[in-house]
Each structure stands twice: as structure tokens, then as C-alpha cells.
């Protein structure tokens, strides 16, 4: 019997709870020993607790140091602050790790994509410093700091080295934003000197977008400031099959939260028809973080087999299976293999 892990489960809202239940079913069947602690987050708990992120949830994440999170809703324009951004701020989850890897059974126009994105998660235009500086002018401060830039570069190079990656590029717009993006690039270059075995370089963000859609195979790892990272990670997700299959992790020095990056799709809540794969692949990423490689491999193989057969897949990939039926098919496939 292996180590028992304690993981905080944050089902979120909308379709989040039904997705997370399906994912838990699969992970529990993989042979890994996890005690799940359920906690609340998001708009649904605002009425009950007066906050998007109750203290009890914060304490549980701080205690367990690892969480798996379902989608939450972020109101556009006015309204409440994003629960996701609040989580990142509270736990200083400065690294958003977003792999974009082709899933073999999903037909895409490319033979190979295996990009690891490291998005700085706490600064840039996300510092929540906005003012109406006159009645017809709004401004948002883009905050880039040396230590914030240095640590995401350090994190990326360390991760790349530990995982046998060969090449890291810094994505920026330092030709125009010479102070802010220039500082980000300077910090990256300083860190790169410490890792001579990893090829490093930089690329201007607009050129990077064009290159990504023309020839994504040329990229290995990308380090990006927050805003470009937000946009390009979704672009990369689109290259490999959309947000429905995109894993993500928000990592700090003390804890890590694994989550899908898609929305909560409230109009589908309770229908049990949505594809839980994004949370599932985030869960697989979590298992690897926990050094449970065998369980992660087992789920990955079973999921690919179920997708390949197309008998028990959800509507978005051409099937009619419910969320639960898809999850159960993956569980059955794992048992078959065993």
C-alpha cells in the first residue's frame, strides 16, 4: 500500500461538482490512495458565507498543500473579484503551468505539439490597479517586478531541467514596452545564464502567435508575463483540441492547485453531459506532481483508449455518453488492462 495523500477538492460551481465527481471516480480507481477533503469556492458560496473564498477553504488548502479544483464563474465588467485570482493572490501561486500536448486520438493538423507554458500568475495587468483618471480615460497599471520575473524564470528552468526539456523561450513585447517587458526579459536572461545546458532565447509575442499557428512543433517551453500567458496558453490549448482537454496547475512555493481552465458552463449544470477531461488531465498532472506516475500513466492510457474507441465519449467529441458514463468507461478500461 502506498502513501495516503490528502487532497483538497474544490468542486466549484455550474458543472464543476458533477465533473469533479466523475474525476474522483476515475482517480480513486487508479490505485492511488487519496483522502479527499471537500471545500467550497466561488459565487455559490457568496450567499452562504459572504465571500468567494471562505476561511475554511483557505485553511484546508494551506494544510494539505495540494488541491484539485473544478471551474468557477468570473463575472465580466462589474461584480465580484474572480475566485481564481483571489486564490492565486492568497497563496502566491506565481507559476501557472499549462502543458499543451497533442492527444493522439484527437485529429489535428499537426504531427507533434508538446509545449510547456510557464505563465507568471501574479503581476502584470492583473495587479488590480485600475483608475478612471478622468471621466473619459481609464488606466490599468502594468506592474512587472524584478523578483516576480526572476522567480518565474527560475521556476521554468528548474521544471524544464527536471523534466528533460531542451529549449526555453521568453515571450515579450520589449520592443514597445521597454521598461516593463524589458525588465521581464532581463530577469529571464539573467536566470538563463545559470542553465547553459538548456537552449534559451526570446520572441516577440505577436510573432510567437503567428509562429504557433504556423509551426507549433518548433516550441518546447515558453515563459510569459501574465497577460500574454493568459492569451497564448488558450491559443496553445486550441492547437491541441480546445479547453476541454487542457490541464493547468497554479503553483507557489508552498502549495499547488490543479484545475481545468475552462468555464463552469452553468447552462449545462445538472445535465451530466459535459466532458470532464480537462479536470481529469489536471488530476493526472496532480498525480505526477505527487510522484504517483503509475496511476497517472494508467489513467492516461485508459482515457486515450476510451477516446479512441469513441463508444463512450461525450457530445463535444461526437458521442452521446454522459459525464458519468465516460468516467465509468475509463474505470472499466483500467480494470481491463489490469
Amino acid at each position: 500500500m502506498g502513501t495516503q495523500h490528502v487532497v483538497t477538492m474544490l468542486p466549484g460551481e455550474g458543472t464543476g461538482p458533477e465533473i469533479c465527481e466523475a474525476v474522483r471516480l476515475v482517480i480513486d480507481a487508479s490505485g492511488v490512495d487519496i483522502k479527499w477533503e471537500y471545500e467550497e469556492i466561488g459565487l455559490d458560496c457568496l450567499d452562504k458565507h459572504g465571500t468567494l473564498l471562505p476561511d475554511k477553504t483557505v485553511q484546508a488548502i494551506a494544510r494539505n498543500k495540494i488541491a484539485l479544483k473544478g471551474p468557477t464563474t468570473t463575472p465580466v465588467g462589474t461584480g465580484h473579484k474572480s475566485a481564481n485570482v483571489t486564490l492565486r493572490k492568497v497563496f502566491d501561486l506565481y507559476a501557472n503551468v499549462r502543458p499543451a500536448k497533442l492527444i493522439p486520438v484527437l485529429k489535428r493538423p499537426w504531427d507533434k505539439i508538446d509545449i510547456l507554458n510557464f505563465r507568471e500568475n501574479t503581476e502584470d495587468c492583473y495587479a488590480a490597479i485600475e483608475h478612471m483618471v478622468s471621466d473619459e480615460v481609464a488606466q490599468c497599471l502594468k506592474v512587472i517586478t524584478w523578483p516576480g520575473s526572476y522567480r518565474i524564470a527560475e521556476f521554468a528552468f528548474k521544471w524544464a531541467k527536471a523534466n528533460g526539456r531542451k529549449k526555453i523561450y521568453c515571450v515579450h513585447k520589449a520592443n514597445i514596452m521597454k521598461m516593463t517587458d524589458g525588465l521581464f526579459l532581463d530577469a529571464f536572461r539573467e536566470v538563463a545564464k545559470k542553465y547553459p545546458d538548456i537552449e534559451s532565447g526570446d520572441i516577440i509575442v505577436d510573432n510567437c502567435c503567428m509562429q504557433l499557428v504556423r509551426n507549433p512543433a518548433q516550441f518546447d517551453c515558453l515563459v510569459l508575463p501574465n497577460l500574454y500567458g493568459d492569451i497564448l496558453t488558450d491559443l496553445c490549448a486550441g492547437l491541441v483540441g480546445g479547453l476541454g482537454f487542457a490541464p493547468g496547475a497554479n503553483v507557489g512555493d508552498t502549495c499547488a492547485i490543479f484545475e481545468a481552465v475552462h468555464g463552469s458552463a452553468p447552462k449545462y449544470a445538472g445535465l451530466k453531459k459535459v466532458n470532464p477531461s480537462a479536470v481529469l488531465v489536471s488530476g493526472i498532472m496532480m498525480l505526477r506532481w505527487m510522484k504517483e506516475e503509475a496511476a497517472a500513466d494508467r489513467i492516461t492510457k485508459a482515457m486515450f483508449a476510451v477516446l479512441d474507441e469513441r463508444k463512450h465519449v461525450t457530445y463535444d467529441v461526437g458521442g452521446t455518453a454522459t459525464t458519468d458514463e465516460y468516467a465509468q468507461a475509463i474505470v472499466d478500461k483500467m480494470h481491463e488492462k489490469a
Partner: peptide, 24 residues
């Protein structure tokens, strides 16, 4: 008071939070 956009006063602030020398 906030630092890099995160509120650092009043209330709890994690000792692990990265702060720079510039406070709003």
C-alpha cells in the same frame, strides 16, 4: 495597503508572499 496588487494590510498576510519595496 497592497503590494503587487495583493492586500497586505489590514488583515492576514502570508509570510511567504513576495513583496517588493513599492506599496500602494
Amino acid at each position: 495597503i497592497s503590494n503587487r496588487g495583493t492586500k497586505v494590510w489590514p488583515g492576514f498576510v502570508s509570510p511567504d508572499l513576495l513583496q517588493v519595496n513599492w506599496y500602494r
